[in-house]
Design a protein around this nucleic acid. Sequence first.
DNA 1: GGCGATTTTTCACCTGGCGAAATCACCCAT
DNA 2: ATGGGTGATTTCGCCAGGTGAAAAATCGCC
Lengths: 288, 288
Amino acid sequence: MAKSNAHPLATGDRIQSVSRALTVLDMLAATPDGQTAKGVAAAAGLTLATTYHLLNTLTAAGYASRDPVSRLFALGPRIPHLHQAFLARARPTPSTIPFLRALHQTTGTTVVLARLFGDEAVTVELIVAPDQDAPAGYIGYSLPAHLIAAGRVLLAWAGVGRLATYLAGRYGHSAGPYPPADPPRLVAELSRIRAGGFADDRGESHPDIWCLAAPIVLPSGEAREAMAIVTNRDRFLRDEATLRAALLAVTHAASAVAATNNGNASLPETSRARELAAAALRVLDLPA
Amino acid sequence: MAKSNAHPLATGDRIQSVSRALTVLDMLAATPDGQTAKGVAAAAGLTLATTYHLLNTLTAAGYASRDPVSRLFALGPRIPHLHQAFLARARPTPSTIPFLRALHQTTGTTVVLARLFGDEAVTVELIVAPDQDAPAGYIGYSLPAHLIAAGRVLLAWAGVGRLATYLAGRYGHSAGPYPPADPPRLVAELSRIRAGGFADDRGESHPDIWCLAAPIVLPSGEAREAMAIVTNRDRFLRDEATLRAALLAVTHAASAVAATNNGNASLPETSRARELAAAALRVLDLPA
DNA sequence: GGCGATTTTTCACCTGGCGAAATCACCCAT
DNA sequence: ATGGGTGATTTCGCCAGGTGAAAAATCGCC
């Protein structure tokens, strides 16, 4: 199976039935309203019988489920469980939270904290402004990094290897409902972002969601987390300079703290972080 | 493989390698901080070599990932994607949202909307009160139904078959970090809830999270969604009667609307729902 | 209530997965 | 430096187990 007629399962080879099962899961994920076994088989390019075996196995384990009346297959109750476990790993650095809160209180906007996992930018913390009307995502929301400001920031401050992998994964394959990135354009955009110290999103993904994002930079020069301000067109255009100043003050302060405690904050360090966040914002003559 | 020496893969049999792969995923989910291949093998009861094959396959598909420095395996970036697809199916009935909002505005508390998926109660909508300090979950949060008030409501208004399945699944097996339900106790509790029309949680899961939950009942007498008020001990004890009245007014009104449009609200029906929600609350002489 | 379409199950063949054993990578003591 | 030990990773022969064509059951429609 490795090459032409070599039988054994060599390194780099994947287990056929498992790969197929995962493809089936992807097919189910692509059609939230449920699929017939036949539809799944067609979408996954498998025999009906094989599809049944896979679907039965997935269903027995709770990864798929079947509506008793419509007989349609869909993703099962195990998925939120997996997600919770994933999120537990994706928790933000504790010392960062006070900074995020400070940013929210100062600007009154929705603020998010995002991290990169593989090619995905994941929202790991979110404080929604009371007047937020456009959907600003939720904790655990994830999408290809280059599509949001915070994701572009994370890409810009990730290692070069990371970016290469990203482009390799996106370009051509174009799996998923999103357009593949245009590599040269993206690379140019990212170096501009790196030079400027922040990224913006002027309603590109949603007409009334405008964002500013900046990284929390580690001593190594890389960034694991990015903070973003999410607001609407009017507020963005009115207050852009102020919002940017607040964002950068907070992320710089957070970067400084990240440098000292290396992300493993103890409780006293966290309260110190609160002070620093407040101090950083006082410099701006903004209400803290 | 079906019984003793019958070779073929019969109905009801599961594909071994796929089952094993899913077990491995569960193992990864159980240890968010990552696992060595060896640890996964031990936890899943598999050979190291087999575990490598499975892990490689999962990683190639993005369901698992491997930290380049620590070499530890963990859940991969595909998980949030799956979850998003799951949530798309779990969206609340559109006509219910205005009722939820009305409840939030009237009481000023955190409110949630939950649905049952398999044995899991999933938070499908959430409006957090500004003064909420204890963690009230997030959209997509899920746990065994009997552990939260909204889940008990859903169980109480689900078909009897559903409850039987639930108990069968929980009793004995006790998979997961939660204690298995005590069936007789739970059945008694559920019939009490059904008789009373609502369920409560007086700090059972978290000392300062107190809840009231009530179902949105369909004409068939079953409930697909439940609404809950989440607040703290003080507020709960001070305003219990008022909060309960508001909750029941809103859920009854929502049930009436659900009866007419069968859950598929068009936009005009949604605005009508808003009116009804307001009307229901006016009856209580509460500020809407 | 019979006929075609669709869903579900069966089972023989032989591919593809399993896992014991070999190999490789790394670390520390000499 | 160098060997020996410990742990991580890969190989490959055997045959368990997965695949899918075809049979059986079930459903929907006139």
